[in-house]
Design a protein around this nucleic acid. Sequence first.
DNA 1: CCTTGACTAGACTAAACAGTCAACTATTCA
DNA 2: TGAATAGTTGACTGTTTAGTCTAGTCAAGG
Lengths: 205, 205
Amino acid sequence: MGRTSDANIRLMNAALELIWEESYGAVTIDDICNRAEVKKGSFYYFYKSKADLAVAALDRMWNEEWKPTLDGIFSSSVDPLARFSAYFDWVYRAQAGLKKKHGKVLGCPLCSVGSEVSTQEQNVSAKVREVFSRKLKYYESTIRDAIAAGQIAPCDAAKKATAIAGLIEGVVAQARIMDDPEVIQSLGAQGLTLLGAKSAAVASA
Amino acid sequence: MGRTSDANIRLMNAALELIWEESYGAVTIDDICNRAEVKKGSFYYFYKSKADLAVAALDRMWNEEWKPTLDGIFSSSVDPLARFSAYFDWVYRAQAGLKKKHGKVLGCPLCSVGSEVSTQEQNVSAKVREVFSRKLKYYESTIRDAIAAGQIAPCDAAKKATAIAGLIEGVVAQARIMDDPEVIQSLGAQGLTLLGAKSAAVASA
DNA sequence: CCTTGACTAGACTAAACAGTCAACTATTCA
DNA sequence: TGAATAGTTGACTGTTTAGTCTAGTCAAGG
């Protein structure tokens, strides 16, 4: 009983947007309240700090956005290497779309925030690590599938997944830093090379 | 005439240290002054803002630290692939050393700061891009040398350099986020695979 | 040795910021 | 319908911060 509200959801969305557009440290609680059209008192009714909200917002991002997207792209019903190709392509198109919409390449919020707060905000940092680990699992099982299918050279799937994640995050970070989505354009070919794909198309990378 | 001072250098060093340990946004001018043992009045005598100091500090970092190190590792007198191997190894050891000394993996300050401020601080961002571009040139010419030596498959050197930089930065960022230098341990093998090295040792990656 | 100018000291202001609180309002359910 | 509950409001406090200003200190060059 009592009145209901979606202010907490508006706060999570506003926080994620602002942190993605600027950075964790540059965004104030007042900024978030303004964007969400929520008053300070309500903010503190739902969350006890910016870090607390950030953790909730990252959790929501994973459940509402990332998990569904990854479940679609990394579906077991799709050919293993084709999953990676589709994902590389999705990453590129997503960043190019952000540039068109926001006027800037925004990169990966998880990596930006994680790198920014890792030595500072323990709770935020733990949530980033959790989401990161979940994402790695998609890469890892797809690598195992690709090995089983004889599409790539046998390797340590966990290490290869880390390397693939590194390549993606690093290239996307460069795109943000350079504010140029075209940096990501050749990610697909480079990614297949790193995977050790046996396809002929890779030679042209 | 008049007295001389190294307060500006102490300020640059303190700024770089603090920003590396925490983040650009988390560090205040007072923090920097305290670490450098310099009073506010002197700070504003030398620099007009935190961004102004950050630009100077990054410039100094490049000239005093990075350029000499890279000139040594990427010396033309060394075998091309061996340069990369030595560099991958240096990256790993540097981060493992930071973990021992600071208790935390600190990652790459250029990438962390660049990613954090790219949509905010224009001047800092421009300096980050400049240093980044300089670093890419080492990779690029080494890739060309490796192709000429027949050590790696022919490819677009600029694109490959971007990919290599991405892999390194991404893996190092993961190491910072996870606070675990071991994430970087297999960078060497993965890097050689991404380069398209023809050596047999790569197969075990 | 003293003048000039580079540098230092630290108190000060104003703004931005996080966080609190008590009174108020709307909704639900009994 | 009305009591209990869930959420809202905005003014308030105290602290941290950037940035300023003036009076001073110190070292080199003449």
